[in-house]
């Protein structure tokens, strides 16, 4: 049987403060504790003191340097660069991506498209004018994606765009986005079942750069595949 903590007893109250920070108070005790915590500055101090005590558990951990891409992602959120500074090409936006993919999907349904006629998921990579730059289509058996060039961004010499997938937290470089025409990119077998759930990323890389995700260049477009329901897989 559960015996509630007596919060009028200083010892039990201090112990409860420790367990509150630790996260082991029962739902009932936690509710009673928090009700008192709102009013009691002494108790608030005790909680902060326990946070300091238990900080010891954090400070025993050996520091681990996060990959550089984490800071780049934070920077993009807290200090988005104006569009004209973004290497003068496209900016990404999930909302725009969604609406463009939707409109494009409808358009493609009305005409016979030139692409792989088994794909039913689409991702649209946008250029700096928010117009489609490439279409990335998944094949029905998920063994590959077909990339069709529409209106790609003009990159400074020596730079290319690479297509990545993030599946179950793992980054996979599929290939370099073409300057023109169609390009088929194979998807390794283990990743195929999760292909349409993958996050798609486009990064700018040096032509001869390696494909190490830790050294991934600036991500200029990212989002998810759009299911083209009702298309009966016509493209």
């Amino acid at each position: 049987m559960h015996h509630p903590i007596d919060l009028t007893d200083p010892e039990q109250r201090n112990q409860a403060a420790g367990e509150y920070v630790l996260g082991t108070l029962s739902v009932q005790d936690k509710a009673a504790f928090e009700a008192l915590l709102v009013f009691s500055t002494d108790l608030q101090k005790e909680v902060e003191q326990w946070r300091e005590h238990l900080q010891l558990l954090n400070s025993q951990l050996e520091p681990v340097q996060p990959p550089k891409r984490v800071w780049r992602a934070i920077e993009e959120i807290v200090k988005p660069e104006p569009w004209f500074k973004r290497l003068n090409f496209w900016q990404w936006s999930t909302a725009v991506s969604f609406s463009c993919a939707f409109v494009l999907g409808l358009t493609l349904l009305l005409q016979k498209p030139p692409m792989d006629n088994t794909a039913d998921h689409l991702y649209v990579v946008h250029n700096d004018e928010k117009k489609p730059a490439w279409l990335v289509n998944t094949s029905m058996d998920r063994s590959n994606v077909m990339v069709q060039t529409i209106d790609p961004a003009k990159l400074p010499s020596g730079l290319v765009c690479k297509l990545w997938l993030k599946i179950n937290g793992e980054y996979l470089m599929l290939g370099t986005l073409p300057h023109n025409g169609l390009e088929k990119m194979m998807v390794p077998e283990p990743y195929r079942p999760m292909l349409v759930k993958a996050e798609v990323l486009v990064s700018v890389e040096p032509i001869n750069g390696d494909n190490d995700p830790d050294k991934m260049g600036r991500v200029v477009d990212r989002g998810g595949f759009m299911p083209l329901s009702g298309s009966t897989r016509r493209f």
Binding site: N58, S59, L61, E62, P63, V64, Q65, P66, V70, W71
Partner: peptide, 10 residues
């Protein structure tokens, strides 16, 4: 970040 990343990874 290295300290906080260690906590998060743990």
């Amino acid at each position: 970040s290295a300290h906080l990343f260690a906590i998060v990874l743990r």
